[in-house]
Measured scan of single mutants.
Amino acid sequence: VRQEELAAARAALHDLMTGKRVATVQKDGRRVEFTATSVSDLKKYIAELEVQTGM
Rank of each mutant, 00 (worst) to 15 (best):
R30S: 09
V22F: 10
T24H: 11
L16N: 00
V1D: 14
L49Q: 02
V32W: 08
Q52P: 08
Q3Y: 13
T24P: 04
E33A: 05
D28I: 00
M55V: 15
D41E: 12
L16D: 00
A8I: 12
A11T: 09
M17A: 08
D28A: 04
T53K: 07
Q52G: 11
R30V: 10
K43N: 07
V51R: 09
M55H: 12
Y45W: 15
R21V: 15
S38K: 08
E5D: 08
V25R: 01
A7D: 12
M17N: 05
V25A: 04
F34S: 01
E5M: 09
A36I: 08
R2V: 13
A47T: 09
R10T: 08
K20Y: 08
A11V: 09
R21E: 14
R21H: 15
D41K: 10
K27R: 07
M17E: 12
V22K: 09
A23Q: 03
M17H: 05
S40E: 15
Q3M: 14
A23I: 08
K20E: 07
M17K: 07
D41Q: 12
M17F: 07
E48A: 09
R2A: 04
A36L: 15
R31L: 15
E4G: 08
H14K: 10
G29V: 01
S40K: 12
H14L: 11
V51L: 14
V51C: 11
D41W: 08
F34K: 00
G19H: 04
E50R: 03
G19P: 01
E4I: 13
D15N: 06
V39I: 14
E48M: 11
V51I: 14
S40G: 15
T53E: 06
V1K: 13
K44R: 13
T37I: 09
A9W: 03
A23W: 03
R31A: 13
M17T: 05
L13P: 00
V22M: 09
A8C: 14
V22T: 04
A23D: 03
K20V: 11
S38M: 15
F34P: 00
L6F: 03
R21Q: 15
R10G: 03
G29F: 03
A7F: 12
M55I: 07
D28W: 01
K20N: 07
V39W: 05
A47C: 10
G19W: 02
K27P: 03
V22Q: 05
L42M: 01
S40P: 11
A9D: 00
L13C: 05
Q26P: 07
M55S: 13
D28K: 03
A9P: 00
A36N: 10
R30A: 11
K44G: 07
T18M: 11
E33C: 08
R31C: 15
R31F: 15
R21A: 15
K43Q: 10
M55E: 14
L49H: 01
Q52K: 11
D41A: 13
K44C: 08
V25N: 01
